[in-house]
C-alpha cells in the first residue's frame, strides 16, 4: 500500500468516532454565527466595517494605506499620473524600471523615458534585481485592509512586485473593492477554474519586527510601496 493509502486509511479509521462541535464543550460560551449555517457566507458581518459608498471606501483605503506606511494618491488624469511619476523619478534618481506589458504600465514607461526591464516572456534575474523601481498594474484594491491584490497575470509574474526596492502600483478607481469576501468573490469570478499560479494580497511595504519587535521597512521585499489610483 502506498503512503497515500496508509494515511487516508488512518484518517478514515480515526473519523469513525465523532468529535463534539466547537463551542459546545462543557463550559464554553456559544456565540452562534447569526444568519449562516457555518461556512464563510456570513463573514462580512463580523469583519471590520468598510462603509457603503465609494467615497467611504476610498477614505478607508487612504487611512489604512497611511497606517501601513504606503503612499496612496488619487490622480485625476493621466497627465497628473505622469507628473507624479516624473517627480518620483527625480527625487529617487531612478535609473532603470522593471515593468510588464499593460495599458497603464506602457503609458507610464513611455512618459518616464528610462531603460526598462520587461518581465513578459522571461527576464534576467540579475537585471531585474538592479532595477530602481518596479511599476506594475494590479487586480484590485481592498479598502478593508489597504491591500493591493496582484496575480502573476496582472502584475508581471511572481518576482517583479517583490524584487526591486520600490514598488509602484498603477490602479484604477473602479478596481477598489470593499472587503475581503468581496475580493475572494472577485478572484473566483475572474479566474475560476484556471487560477494564476500566484496570487497575493500586498498590504504595505515589506517589513519585519524580528529585532526587539521594532518595525523596520524593507526586510526582503520593497522598502517603499506607492499606489497611484486613476
Amino acid at each position: 500500500m502506498s503512503e497515500r493509502e496508509n494515511i487516508l486509511a488512518r484518517i478514515r479509521e480515526a473519523l469513525t468516532v465523532r468529535a463534539p462541535m466547537p463551542g459546545h464543550a462543557q463550559d464554553s460560551v456559544t456565540h452562534p454565527p447569526a444568519g449562516s449555517g457555518g461556512g464563510s457566507s456570513g463573514v462580512r458581518q463580523w469583519l471590520p466595517l468598510v462603509g457603503y459608498t465609494f467615497q467611504e471606501r476610498l477614505e478607508l483605503f487612504r487611512t489604512n494605506a497611511a497606517a501601513l506606511k504606503a503612499d496612496f494618491h488619487l490622480v485625476a488624469s493621466r497627465d497628473e499620473l505622469s507628473e507624479r511619476l516624473l517627480e518620483l523619478r527625480e527625487a529617487e534618481g531612478w535609473k532603470k524600471v522593471g515593468t510588464h506589458a499593460g495599458e497603464l504600465t506602457d503609458f507610464a514607461c513611455g512618459q518616464l523615458a528610462l531603460p526598462t526591464c520587461r518581465t513578459d516572456g522571461g527576464y534576467d534575474v540579475a537585471e531585474l534585481e538592479s532595477c530602481s523601481v518596479a511599476i506594475t498594474e494590479c487586480d484590485a484594491l481592498v479598502a478593508q485592509t489597504g491591500s493591493v491584490l496582484v496575480t502573476s497575470r496582472s502584475a508581471g509574474g511572481r518576482a517583479l512586485s517583490v524584487l526591486p526596492p520600490h514598488h509602484v502600483v498603477l490602479a484604477q478607481s473602479r478596481q477598489l473593492l470593499g472587503d475581503l469576501p468581496e475580493a475572494f468573490a472577485f478572484l473566483k469570478k475572474t479566474y475560476a477554474p484556471g487560477y494564476p499560479s500566484f496570487i497575493s494580497f500586498i498590504t504595505g511595504p515589506s517589513r519585519t519586527g524580528d529585532i526587539e519587535r521594532i518595525l523596520v521597512l524593507g526586510a526582503h521585499g520593497p522598502r517603499k510601496l506607492t499606489i497611484l489610483c486613476l
Binding site: 471590520p48 489604512n64 478593508q144 485592509t145 489597504g146 491591500s147 502573476s152 517583490v162 487560477y195 494564476p196 499560479s197 500566484f198 496570487i199 497575493s200 494580497f201 500586498i202 498590504t203 504595505g204 511595504p205 515589506s206 517589513r207 521585499g221
Partner: peptide, 15 residues
C-alpha cells in the same frame, strides 16, 4: 496586524 504584508496563494509551478 489587520493583515500581514504578504498573503500569497500558490497553485502550482509556472503555468
Amino acid at each position: 496586524q489587520a493583515l500581514t504584508c504578504y498573503n500569497s496563494f500558490y497553485g502550482g509551478p509556472r503555468q
